[in-house]
């Protein structure tokens, strides 16, 4: 038997095993395919809309496509993470797992790893579809838009979805799926408007309101780090340091939220 010093089963095989089961379980969910179909539809709409423009129709496809990937990845992360722990508790599948010599933290990290794998798969499919549509619609050759900024932009959307998944799984440790989806959507909307909130804090005369708004910008994830839409549309070069900062930010924020999720799931009563 594999046994750690605390008598627990070592983390790596446990996390991989839970991730594998979670991955294949989510793969059977309709939600994944609905999201994929919705994104394909959005991309097609972008393609159709681009036919209405005489000047730079390819930019319409660029914008529509990137937005479609953004929305799809975010919705998927919010939806699948939001019910992961709650459903395990309701179905009592978590009971049989937690009776084994594993910690609740290991279980939660395994579930998160499974969600991450699904997000990566979704991201690969969407990115591939996006690149193909871009190539097909390009007037000046396939490689015109396939520059580093586009790939960084796509990559950062994956990291944004990981942050949202971490928030979603944290919320699912103590609330219902519906509430988790609503709150997580709030995180997404606020997170994408952090600079507006900071601006509001500067403009407001009330010190208390300004302080509260600034406090919120520290609690909510700053998802603007992951948005490179303008750079992609206008073909601007990417500042590598900014992109790397965004990746580190994603890792640190997700780690902190997962830590809270572990503490929360340890306190959760199993009925």
């Amino acid at each position: 038997m594999n046994v750690s010093r605390r008598g627990l089963t070592p983390s790596l095989p446990v996390i991989l095993s839970i991730a594998r089961v979670s991955f294949f379980e989510i793969l059977r969910e309709k939600i994944l395919y609905i999201t994929l179909m919705m994104t394909a539809l959005l991309m097609f709409l972008g393609f159709a809309a681009s036919r209405l423009f005489f000047i730079r129709p390819d930019r319409v496809i660029l914008d529509f496509g990137l937005s479609a990937v953004n929305i799809s990845m975010s919705i998927l992360a919010i939806l699948i993470a939001g019910y992961q722990i709650g459903r395990e508790v309701d179905r009592r599948t978590i009971h049989i797992a937690l009776v084994r010599p594993i910690s609740r933290g290991q279980f939660l990290l395994g579930k998160f790893a499974g969600i991450k794998c699904i997000l990566i798969l979704n991201w690969l499919l969407l990115s591939a579809g996006y690149v193909v549509i871009l190539g097909l619609s390009s007037h000046e050759g396939f490689t015109e838009h396939l520059h580093a900024t586009l790939f960084w932009a796509l990559g950062l959307l994956l990291f944004q979805s990981v942050v949202l998944a971490a928030v979603g799984i944290f919320l699912s440790t103590f609330t219902t799926a519906a509430l988790s989806w609503m709150i997580c959507t709030g995180f997404y909307l606020i997170g994408n408007n952090i600079s507006q909130i900071r601006l509001l804090a500067i403009k407001t005369k009330n010190v208390f309101v300004a302080g509260s708004l600034n406090g919120l910008t520290w609690i909510f994830p700053n998802l603007e780090h992951f948005s490179l839409g303008t750079q992609v549309t206008y073909g601007l070069p990417i500042v590598t340091e900014a992109a790397v900062t965004a990746i580190v930010y994603s890792a640190v924020y997700s780690a902190l939220v997962l830590l809270l999720a572990v503490l929360s799931v340890q306190k959760r009563e199993l009925n």
């Binding site: 038997m1 089963t9 095989p13 379980e25 009592r92 599948t93 797992a97 084994r100 010599p101």
Partner: peptide, 24 residues
């Protein structure tokens, strides 16, 4: 009234819980 991950086969199901128990 347990609910098991119903996409797993009987053998995969046992492998999953065996791994959680620390079996090689």
């Amino acid at each position: 009234r347990p609910y098991f991950y119903d996409h797993l086969t009987g053998e995969d199901f046992l492998k999953y819980f065996g791994t959680l128990s620390g079996m090689t």
